[in-house]
Design a protein around this nucleic acid. Structure first.
Lengths: 243, 243
DNA sequence: TGGCATAATTTTGCATTCAAAATTATGCAC
DNA sequence: GTGCATAATTTTGAATGCAAAATTATGCCA
């Protein structure tokens, strides 16, 4: 049975879904309950319906998702592996609380991963890929001009994802998705100042310029700088609310 | 109940286990069945008892591990998240088969991650950490001289782990562990030629020298070169048996 | 009333059960 | 014997049941 989504559709769209196709090429018709539960809970965390430190009430969540404990517990195991949930033996599951240090670590890793991806993408992306990237950047600049923060947030993520996909490295793509899942709640929460927004747009342009020149090391350096910068801003923002 | 280990203890030792302690500081006395199943199956894959492409017979594995399907299926979900198992809806689980491309991707990612870790470790490791690293290198060189391949294999991995831990970045440490789990079967299988063994020792020395100089970018570059080199050798080796 | 021991309740981890789907076996026409 | 349709069996996904542990509530005594 399908679980009714209570989350913002803008934040649930998953551009990596296409990569999940089976080797058997059987289109997925009915998804399993645990799979739906995974996405649902993941979204609940990003949406803020489940907050870091919250103990998860299994019977309660079962009622909410209209599923039994078996698929829910399977979902919790997966989310724990992804780092979104903590499983405390004989105590239950709680939403992972990110310390400032962990958040800093995540952004540092993300910066390294995306830097690496950009470096590879610079030499591996096709002309068509570059074309798409340029289109996205135009779209993003228009959203910036229109001050549409929510859509910008979404398109910005899509641009980063496109670059990571441009690396053509399946392992990097997967690692990236996991890291993004863990920081997205904080990124979503962080207030994007006008100054930071302007800077971010400029940094993107710099990264794209390096990619266009097919200068891997330069793209890497600029991407690392960009994400490190984003991390600092997000950290400063969450530091005010939960130190 | 404890699951009897059928695997080589040399390959099951986990230097990262210490980082798994609970925030509650409750020492883990009884581990859960699904947790033991996870490690057991992971080891079975590295050991070659489960080979890529094999369908997993649930009742059979339940009998082998002396557990019911619930914890086994939970374990399979986790291993699928880690990338060691593929879950095909309504068909079951099978051991992930690594294509040459996926293997190349994994080593490329690993090279980037360890390079990044080395870069950070260069500036963050304490004098005591360096001391430990030097001791490990000496030990490794002795194993090389003694031609003890199995112990070398183990100690080599410990050295790499020590460097990654030296980065002080929890996210990188976790990502690294997952990547290592996926390539270790192939690394274990790959025949280490005398030439490659000599080279590897020399490359380690180069990395350590860069770390001692606290030259992050150089350590990064040398580590990336070293792992890329290892990847090429492993790929060439597995390419002969399963293309 | 406060502190603590014990009892009741809830929650967890795992086993078992059950229905639906997939696989394999059987039988029948040709 | 071969090809195909149908029946029997196995396997999967999920719900339920159950015992042990943890949490909360209750009552006793100072």
């Amino acid at each position: 049975m399908a679980i009714a989504s209570v989350v913002n559709p803008v934040l649930t769209e998953d551009p990596t879904a296409a990569s999940k196709v089976e080797a058997e090429a059987i289109p997925i018709l009915r998804r399993s309950l645990h799979d739906e539960a995974i996405e649902h809970i993941r979204d609940m965390i990003v949406e803020g319906l489940l907050v870091g430190g919250d103990w998860i009430n299994e019977p309660e969540l079962c009622r909410q998702l209209q599923i039994s404990r078996t698929p829910l517990r399977e979902a919790l195991k997966v989310l724990a592996t992804e780092g979104l949930i903590e499983l405390v033996p004989r105590r239950g599951a709680r939403v992972a609380r990110l310390s400032t240090q962990e958040m800093a670590d995540l952004f540092e890793a993300l910066s390294g991963i995306e830097g690496l991806a950009a470096e590879l993408a610079a030499t591996r992306m096709s002309a068509a890929d570059f074309e798409k990237l340029r289109d996205m950047q135009v779209k993003i600049e228009n959203l910036h001009a229109a001050r549409d923060r929510l859509t910008y947030f979404h398109e910005n993520r899509a641009l980063h994802l496109a670059i990571v996909h441009g690396s053509g490295n399946s392992a990097l793509i997967k690692i990236h998705a996991q890291l993004i899942a863990r920081v997205s709640r904080a990124r979503y929460q962080a207030i994007l100042s006008d100054q930071r927004w302007d800077d971010s747009i400029a940094e993107h342009a710099q990264v794209l310029a390096a990619l266009e020149k097919r200068d891997g090391p330069l793209a890497c350096e600029r991407m690392r700088y960009h994400i490190a910068h984003t991390g600092k801003v997000v950290l400063a923002s969450v530091g005010k609310t939960s130190p």
